[in-house]
């Protein structure tokens, strides 16, 4: 495990799952905000993935600078440490509108590993995005894999 990964682990570990170290009162508002901010973070992922994906699908001409900017935003968002975002009691069984399965709060180590996997894949994508369309596409696949791995295990179906 490299230093970069270690720092990411520590940063993500602190927020993902436990939501610890934050003095957010566990009232309705805090829970609502937690779900909101998680969804907002996913929206940032989706927005930037959309830019890169449109290039990968051939719907948008490849541009190294645009691709790099999108990949950097994605990497920054996936390494973001948002206090209280994973507040206990905001799972799909406890909070209306949440699709985060309760298992997230039971499998801390696995969730952390999956979060780090996304951060690593998007960091690699940052490095590759400006190097050409094929390089960007090759690095794009593992990001999708990281999204899917977490959604498969930890996201409830839509309602």
């Amino acid at each position: 495990m490299g230093l970069k990964t270690w720092i990411a682990c520590a940063a993500l570990g602190a927020t993902v799952v436990t939501g610890a170290g934050v003095a957010v009162a566990q009232d309705g508002k805090a829970a609502e905000n937690a779900v909101k901010v998680r969804k907002a973070q996913m929206q940032i992922y989706a927005y930037n993935l959309g830019v890169l994906g449109a290039m990968a699908k051939g719907q948008l001409p490849y541009d190294a600078e645009t691709a790099t900017n999108a990949a950097n935003s994605l990497a920054a968002a996936s390494g973001m440490r948002i206090p209280g975002a994973w507040l206990p009691g905001t799972d799909s069984e406890s909070f209306e509108g949440s699709r985060a399965l309760p298992a997230i709060w039971e499998n801390g180590d696995d969730v952390r590993a999956k979060a780090v996997a996304l951060w690593e894949a998007s960091t690699d994508l940052s490095d590759a995005a400006g190097m050409g369309l094929d390089e960007m596409k090759a690095a794009f696949g593992p990001v999708g894999g990281a999204c899917g791995a977490c959604h498969k295990a930890y996201r409830a179906p839509a309602n």
């Binding site: 989706a46 927005y47 959309g50 999708g144 999204c147 899917g148 959604h151 498969k152 409830a156 179906p157």
Partner: peptide, 10 residues
């Protein structure tokens, strides 16, 4: 819209 498949569909 770059949501990603979850659950059994993944």
């Amino acid at each position: 819209d770059f949501d990603s498949a979850g659950g059994h569909m993944a």
